[in-house]
Design a protein around this nucleic acid. Structure first.
Length: 575
RNA sequence: GGCGCCGUAGCCAAGUGGCUAAGGCAUCGGAUUGCAAAUCCGACAUCGUGAGUUCGACUCUCACCGGCGCCUCCA
């Protein structure tokens, strides 16, 4: 078999292709029909962080898209195992530990906690295994030994290097030939046979964390831990290997080299690389084209936890999912806030659904698996339109997990549901069992599809809302009541003064068929609301509208707020 | 220098060899509202430039211009 012998890695036999799902493969630079190593099962390995510092938003792109990928593959009926590794031994960790006078393990623990908190906030909960390099030393050493035994690696003064000249296929992922990767050789150049060789094992200097090995006491090189962890949890050949585009070379190239030389067969069938985030330093400027800078912890990027605290995880997830995962994304808080506006319209729809049906969107039962045969017309225009949206949503996801296109359909679905409410006057008495049933079907479709994206799984925790002041919740009904009375008396000046006066506090009023609703009101809103009321009372007194001014004081007293008129103005206190 | 990516409306962003080029934000009309808000309806792009292939290209090829990535650690 002369032709086949040109490749040392024998291709493994794959399942029949999925009829519609295609996945882009960095290895072939094409979208390919999706086939699996084992029928009905998918193994995914995503390169996680080296935990030497806090995460930045760029670290979430991979986890978020793969979280969706797993959800979608499950939806398509696959059984999926997803591994995200933690690299917790590395030069940078050692340096960090030395700088701070703590152990490498302590540095790792701190940043792993940060990372896990970030994942949880963004709704990434599909990861099955979280292996750590330091927990896989026997497996790492076994692979290194095997590579030495088969002549692909050599020991040199206690270090072990992979001999790239022995690997005929070296460079196939990043599309470069050996003479193109002859750099300065990096650290330990004098111990290498070729400058492109890379370390599988690094002997320890005094004081460095070290593990016993057949060579010198030391630690694994970068790259090798992924080969070991993926083998341990997913086998010698698995389906999808993911990571940031910046990992293609040298990290993934070296992983392939190690694993395929060690096992003599395909390492991963599909290589899926997400695009990188850039920080938009000129956001807000007209005309775009402004400079943007690379996100990198070495350049001080970080603060993801702070960003989450401010914006909330769902906004960030939604922002990331609006763009195809392979694109470069310009990130700025303004961009996140713009995405959030779209998100809010969904939250409003969910509330509308609740007003009409008393049902909770978040508790709707939705289909968990795709069904191809439910496209026959129902004779109901709204339901038919929704079915068409769903079909387009699925087609988008089938096309290399095109979440951006899928989200467009979600907006369309929201419009269909809102229109249905309008056309059938569901908030003005048009609701009956039939219309409520149809609306619920529409909402369940939104639930089914948003479940795939991992959004709207539960009411958003942040921002603002959850921390609403208890007193504010008591005062607002009273404010609304005052305004309702003013409106009933056609005293629109007072009614509008209340609503307009509330605007700067972040509290919004919306008049609905069933009464006025209020939303918003974050930290400090209560003080501003009280100031508005005091101001309104002053104005009323000035206008001899004592009915209003007295009502304000009396009703505030009823909820435990006392107003005291002093020479310098009115002060309020909690009783 | 080597390898590669991108350029769609004011902004963000899907998509396709030929029917109306998704969707979101913003803007402008209209319905609705006491006025708003929300919601709905409508308006708003010929797809960086030039050439080629083709009956036909925004979609394929080439050139150019303009952004960007990797080649050192990096999600």
């Amino acid at each position: 078999m002369p032709a086949a012998s040109q490749t040392q890695s024998t291709a493994v036999e794959l399942s029949a292709p999925h009829p519609t799902l295609t996945v882009y493969n960095t290895l072939s630079k094409k979208k390919e029909p999706f086939r699996t190593v084992e029928e009905g099962k998918v193994g995914i390995y995503l390169c996680g962080p080296t935990v030497y510092d806090k995460a930045h938003i760029g670290h979430m792109v991979g986890p978020v898209i793969f979280d969706c990928i797993k959800r979608y593959l499950k939806y398509c009926g696959y059984h999926v195992t997803w591994v995200v590794n933690i690299t917790d031994v590395d030069d940078k960790l050692i340096n960090k530990a030395n700088d701070r006078g703590i152990t490498m393990l302590e540095v790792a623990e701190e940043n792993i906690a940060d990372y896990n908190g970030n994942l949880a906030a963004l709704g990434v909960d599909q990861i099955d295994h979280f292996p750590r390099a330091t927990e896989c030393m026997p497996e790492i050493i076994a692979i290194v030994q095997s590579l030495i035994d088969s002549g692909y690696a050599y020991e040199s003064e206690g270090d072990v290097y992979f001999d790239v000249t022995k690997d005929r296929e070296y460079g196939k992922l990043s599309n470069r030939s050996l003479d193109q990767v002859q750099g300065d050789g990096g650290g330990g150049a004098e111990r290498k046979r070729s400058s492109a060789d890379f370390a599988l094992w690094k002997s320890a200097k005094p004081g460095e964390p070290a593990w016993d090995s057949p060579w010198a006491k030391g630690r694994p090189g970068w790259h090798i831990e992924c080969s070991a962890m993926s083998k341990k949890l997913l086998g010698e050949t698995f389906d999808i290997h993911g990571g940031g585009l910046d990992l293609v070379f040298p990290h993934h190239e070296n992983e392939i080299a190690q694993s395929e030389c060690c096992h003599g067969k395909t390492f991963a069938t599909y290589w899926a690389h997400n695009g990188l985030l850039r920080k938009d330093s000129e956001s807000g400027k007209i005309g775009g084209g402004g400079a943007s800078e690379k996100m990198s912890r070495s350049k001080g990027a970080g603060g993801l936890a702070t960003l989450i605290a401010k914006q909330g995880g769902e906004r960030i997830r939604f922002f990331l999912l609006r763009t195809h995962y392979r694109s470069t994304v310009l990130f700025s808080e303004e961009a996140i806030e713009e995405a959030a506006i779209g998100l809010e319209s969904f939250y409003r729809l969910f509330k509308r659904y609740h007003r009409i049906t008393k049902g909770d969107f978040y508790h709707l039962q939705a289909r968990a698996h795709r069904t191809e045969g439910d496209t026959q017309s129902t004779g109901n225009a709204a339901l038919d339109a929704a079915a068409a949206c769903k079909a387009k949503f699925i087609a988008a996801m089938d096309d290399d997990f095109n979440t951006g296109g899928a989200i467009g359909e979600l907006f369309e679905l929201a419009k269909i549901a809102n229109r249905y409410c309008d056309e059938h006057n569901l908030e003005g008495g048009g609701a009956d069992n039939a219309t409520i049933g149809d609306l619920t079907l529409l909402m369940a479709t939104i639930k089914e599809l948003s479940n795939i994206l991992g959004i709207f799984l539960q009411p958003p925790a942040l921002p603002g809302g959850s921390a609403t002041d208890e007193l504010l919740s008591k005062v607002m009904p009273l404010v609304i009541e005052l305004r309702a009375e003013a409106r009933a008396a056609k005293n629109f000046a007072v009614a509008d003064a209340i609503r307009d006066g509330l605007a700067p506090t972040g509290v919004k009023l919306e008049d609905r068929a069933g009464g006025t609703e209020w939303t918003g009101g974050g930290e400090g809103a209560i003080d501003k609301v009280m100031a508005m009321l005091i101001d309104l009372r002053q104005t009323s007194r000035k206008n001899k509208d004592f009915k209003t001014s007295d009502a304000i004081r009396d009703r505030l007293a009823a909820v435990g707020v006392i107003l005291e008129d002093r020479s310098g103005g009115t002060e309020w206190t909690r009783a």
